[in-house]
């Protein structure tokens, strides 16, 4: 008899509907939807997305106060990279004791963003920035280096340049 009543009266369906109804009602009857618990609102392309401070984005070469590249070509990052995306060519520059990277090539298309290179660097000359929109239209745009204006290792990549939160 009890089982028959339970089959007749769909309490289980009502229970499920009450969950969805509760969430719908909370959102529908509240003016400020950001305040609704459990409700996630994001206006992502208009409002830059916030990432955590440790976020692993694109590899970036750093410069010191004089505007010189900090890298001293110890090749630690080249050796540790699991996918061998970094190629460094050693060279000399006048008025600088330490070796200077004539070439610092970074093949972003094969990079897996593991941050082993930054971890291995003993001179704090590279970081992974907070950029996550790394799409490009041409394959050449993924080959980054120290030269050139559009794609270099010092600035943000052009696509998604405007939707990265500065912090």
């Amino acid at each position: 008899m009890n089982k028959f009543l339970r089959t007749l009266i769909p309490t289980d369906i009502a229970k499920g509907l009450s969950v969805t109804g509760k969430h719908f009602g909370q959102v529908f009857f509240t003016a400020n939807r950001r305040k609704v618990p459990f409700h996630i609102v994001g206006e992502y392309p208009e409002v830059p997305a916030k990432v955590q401070p440790r976020y692993r984005g694109r590899l970036t070469l750093l410069k010191d106060e004089q505007g010189e590249i900090k890298c001293v070509c110890c090749l630690a990052c080249e050796k540790i990279c699991p996918t061998q995306v970094i190629t460094i060519e050693k060279g000399k520059m006048e008025g600088r004791k330490m070796p200077f990277p004539v070439r610092y090539d970074f093949e972003m298309e094969r990079c897996i963003f593991c941050e082993f290179c930054v971890e291995s660097c003993g001179f704090d000359s590279i970081i992974l920035n907070h950029q996550f929109e790394l799409a490009a239209y041409n394959r050449e745009d993924f080959s980054l280096g120290t030269k050139g204006t559009a794609q270099n290792m010092f600035e943000l990549s052009p696509v998604g340049k405007y939707s990265v939160a500065e912090d």
Binding site: Q52, R54, F113, C114, F116
Partner: peptide
């Protein structure tokens, strides 16, 4: 998000 806060990546954590 907790993954990202700890190790910087969401899915391929390392």
């Amino acid at each position: 998000d907790i993954n990202e806060a700890f190790c910087g990546s969401r899915l391929t954590t390392t």
